[in-house]
Nucleic acid binder design. Structure first.
Lengths: 297, 297
DNA sequence: TAAAAATACTCCATAGGTATTTTAT
DNA sequence: ATAAAATACCTATGGAGTATTTTTA
């Protein structure tokens, strides 16, 4: 049995006349009779009662009609669904980002614009650290990631650098520096630094360490926090001070002050990464709207 | 596009390997490649990504898979549904009966047994007078009817006579005759008779009239009631007396007595009718269990 | 008798087979 | 080097055409 049989049957069931149905199907009447006959043989029961002027459906024909219609409809829907998916109109895009990038306006804008342009694409969002995101990307559990580019990236990923972001110092409101509009790093030399674990937030951690050394000191005491929001909360709890990307200052926790840095200052680097030779049209569509430049970190 | 393409596609999508899929489909690998290629051309997008060791689904292929599966499934379901309908396992049977037959135990038993044997067949029940039932049967709005056979029936129906049923006299409990176990018709010669309208319950009406004449009188005063239950209610309201099929005495209305008739007594004739040359297997199944004998009324 | 479906037959398009080449790791 | 898909080419099944017969109201 083929869709041809179902299509022919459905047309005859509509017309209740083989000759007219054959006309509509752009075939002649005899082959139509033959195909219906073959279908009836396959089923083992007549689908039509042949009368002198046309035909009528048997109960078997009536029962066949409903499901046959669904079959033909599903077949057509399958083609349309495939075509839509191929054009990138539908589908899933798995997007990962670091907790420190979660507040970056470029990421928010890209998500908003992409959803506006492709409203039927489902975005699966994952927040995690750069190492985890990279691993997920390479193992095909994520399609696009917003990550902090470090020293050695795998070479089978494609990187799109976003503009570097300034960083700010976060201090408790009760801290003497809280009254100032800006600070230089050296003023923090005796403070306890709340940072991401080196193994996880490696790149931001490194960047801060390097700048402190350039400013002439080595942070003596450090304390790790697993998430960007935890960092701010720990500062609010007066456990120490920290350095965060400027966009993170959107987290307006009571009892915390953000200060601009003058002089030597670390930069928060951000990049979008995809698998190299990525075939997914959704990834292409997403990356097209990322305002970064292609290239190594 | 044919079901073949969908079946082939689904097998490849399961195996993710053309050669293995071809084995399962009992064809060789090249024609499978060709059919998938033709399908992809029809859709306008590749469904598989060809890798060195096997293939994987593209997003278009993934989208296609769901609906393609439904299409194949529906096609198979259509065949099964038709086969079941052809065997009389499913379908609708429209059954009509007169209100005076509604209490006949043969009808109740037949409905019960038929439903027990063919639980998936839906019975549509219609209660109406013989004239209406006959018309509905001939115009294909009913399939089987329990009717009161009269003098001239259409000859394009098939009749199955059921055993004649005795009739009883119904009187109000306050009536002098209510004390007797039985009556003869002549005792009713001065009573008001509650009967079906002649145009509607023609046969039962005629039968009663003929018997009264044979008993030696003509019912002087008559009153019509539209339904068998109304007849009994009118008797209960002391409007008059009536004659009903014995099975109607199941209607145990307060203030009403049923009396056997001795001597000349009318009979309630009942028959099952179907269209002549009826092709429906459901009608055949139903009639097979009707314990009547075939023939004219 | 006429309208419509079935049958008889012919033809060719194409599904499927075999042999071989190409491709990608 | 190897596994697997694509290509080339051939064969033959069967879908569709034309002409005609059968059916039934």
């Amino acid at each position: 049995m083929e869709l041809r049989h179902l299509r022919y049957f459905l047309t005859v069931a509509e017309e209740l006349n083989f000759s007219r149905a054959a006309l509509r199907l752009n075939i002649s009447q005899p082959p139509l009779s033959q195909q219906i006959k073959a279908l009836e043989a396959r089923i083992g029961a007549p689908l039509f009662r042949r009368l002198s002027h046309g035909v009528e459906l048997t109960s078997a024909g009536l029962a066949f009609q409903q499901e046959a219609y669904r079959a033909v409809e599903s077949a057509e829907k399958a083609v349309l669904a495939a075509q839509r998916a191929a054009r990138g109109v539908t589908g899933n895009l798995r997007l990962g980002f670091t907790s420190s990038a979660a507040f970056n306006p470029l990421l928010a804008a890209r998500i908003r614009d992409f959803q506006r342009e492709w409203p039927e694409v489902r975005l699966d969002l994952v927040e995690n650290n750069t190492l985890y995101l990279l691993e997920s990307l390479l193992e095909d559990r994520l399609d696009v990631i917003y990550m902090r580019p470090g020293i050695h990236q795998p070479d089978n990923i494609e990187l799109y650098r976003l503009p570097d972001e300034a960083m700010k110092v976060v201090v408790p409101a009760t801290h003497p520096l809280a009254q100032q509009k800006s600070v230089n790093l050296l003023q923090l030399k005796d403070e306890l630094f709340i940072l991401f674990p080196a193994a996880v937030g490696l790149t931001l951690f490194d960047e801060i360490m390097i700048c402190c050394r350039a400013a002439g000191f080595e942070p003596k005491r450090t304390q790790v926090a697993p998430q960007m929001s935890s960092v701010v909360n720990f500062v609010a709890a007066e456990m120490g001070v920290s350095l965060v990307p400027a966009s993170v200052s959107q987290i307006q926790v009571h009892n915390v002050r953000y200060l601009d840095i003058v002089g030597i200052s670390p930069l928060a680097r951000l990049a979008v990464a995809t698998r190299r030779h990525e075939p997914s049209i959704l990834v292409k569509h997403f990356v097209q709207g990322v305002s970064g430049k292609k290239g190594r970190a």
